[in-house]
Design a binder for these strands. Sequence first.
DNA 1: TTGTATGCGTTATCAC
DNA 2: GTGATAACGCATACAA
Lengths: 337, 337
Amino acid sequence: MVTIYDVAAKASVSAMTVSRVINNTGKISDKTRAKVKRVMEELGYVPNQTARSLVLQQTKLLFLLITDIMNPFYTTLARGAEDAAKRSGYRLLFGNSDESIEKESDYVTTILTTRVDGVLVAPAGDPSLPHLESLRKHKVPFVLLDREVPGIECDIVLGDSKDGARRLVEHLVAKGHRNIAFVNGSPSVSSARLRLQGYQDGMKLSDLAYNERYVFETSFGPLSDLTEMGQWLDQLDPAPTAIVAGNNVLAVEILRLFRERGISVPEDISIVCFDDLGPYSEVEPFLTVAAQQAYQFGYMGMQMLVERIQERETALPWKKIVLPADLVIRRSVKTLS
Amino acid sequence: MVTIYDVAAKASVSAMTVSRVINNTGKISDKTRAKVKRVMEELGYVPNQTARSLVLQQTKLLFLLITDIMNPFYTTLARGAEDAAKRSGYRLLFGNSDESIEKESDYVTTILTTRVDGVLVAPAGDPSLPHLESLRKHKVPFVLLDREVPGIECDIVLGDSKDGARRLVEHLVAKGHRNIAFVNGSPSVSSARLRLQGYQDGMKLSDLAYNERYVFETSFGPLSDLTEMGQWLDQLDPAPTAIVAGNNVLAVEILRLFRERGISVPEDISIVCFDDLGPYSEVEPFLTVAAQQAYQFGYMGMQMLVERIQERETALPWKKIVLPADLVIRRSVKTLS
DNA sequence: TTGTATGCGTTATCAC
DNA sequence: GTGATAACGCATACAA
């Protein structure tokens, strides 16, 4: 490996001088600077970030932990985070917890040992609390994305889940639906709780009775088995004319069930959901959704994180950004007479 | 920060003993081991991977560079790579080149300075050659995924693009189509060239004339503008009854164009493509595809990479894995009489 | 079974 | 402007 000393020797200067050229610090004569640069080129010298990290006590590495890398909401969010990170001169490590507290735990270990400068976390749920406490204890700055965790105070970027869910219900009601079911994520996830509240609010505001039998709670991630959801649907009497899905993944799972059963959307039943499908919003049934600004989640979250890192000394107050969910009306809802 | 010396002092042993406990090396009495472990717990000691990397000359970090993080093919591939990496005790950094040689170049710099132990690369195209030469020059082991780059010899995992494309054409022909257009990625990408060959072979084997006017070449990534593709389509006379898309992203872009124009699939025109849509294969038009084993690309590529790293001394011959593309027949092709 | 000295590649400090 | 030295946290080689 070519080190700073190899360059120094060949350029007949000290290692310190080379370091100054690399980092553009201190005063260097143009002549030596040119010579050092030429030698670096000749030798194909590349600074060793590991050694640099050790002495500087910072890695210039950030970490993004998401819960579902197959979900366009999170990949779009990742794009935003990546762009913002690069703009601030940071590199981005990345992990995928699969909505699993255990996998999340492994990543927290990685984060701690790798000494990343900060973390962007979409927590798996309320049980993520000890993981966040661990980060806090080791003074790793972090920003939460998409989900709150009771018991922890921190910077956070949230979507307006309650409002979005309520508007989805109201849209269905406006289209003549009165029998509306709700397929939601786990109640251990804050956004799922808020979306349930929004659903309840929407029903109440429309003078419709809330019936908990019409709510099915599962995971926001891909479902390994659809039978339970199918059984829940079968026992609903009267059968719903519309379903609200707690997120895009669940909407697709419901569509999968309907396909198996030969049920058409929106002819036989209507469906709306939280989060857009990214590029796949182009295909049928061209879902009506409460679209969140996924890219902004990542971009703004990353900005907050970088600010938090750079102002580490000053005691900034915790910031909370709530992004609206925009109702995008497409063609997955049938108008009832 | 709690260091190995803090633990050593509190446990009344030397730093070396602590190091041995951490790494399970050497002989340690059970008593001291227990004491050291207890103190580590009490102090919340976390090993500093940066320092460890500096002395061991390895980071236990691997890098995965893909060209489109929004594409289910690559996210599924990433899942495979991640799983295999974890299984081998490596952590995974990750970057997204967006099919851009310039962004790819930035990532190569990151890879070099970060001293990752190895890289999994889906190259942006043939112009990636200097990037790969740079990795080779700095002795960073790498494995190519999905695309070959003329001029470089290395381990690689490829899909059988030619065969898959030929079979897509043959399927269309079997369904009565004779006028088949092809929307492909850039010819600077090896898989695009092979898919074009497969298309040509398929036409020839079916005694159909190959007409280059029926081939539209663009990028495998999302298109910012559909007008060019629209104009190409308009001038085709006779209009094709079916389109083969070079990958899933292009298929979705074509669907987007059709939606704008009120064209239905498969009623008005049939469409097939390379690569599955992941979870979104459930939605209409329920595309018939040549599905690649995306997860295996990542998993097997990562295995090859780890093996290459571990056998660095022994001169292993370059390995090439070619994974078949499976024809999955669904409902996006209309049968012509 | 445990400890001491040394070095990994870089930068901060202080001296010249 | 430039250089010598120490330090970052850890593990290897060698002693004890």
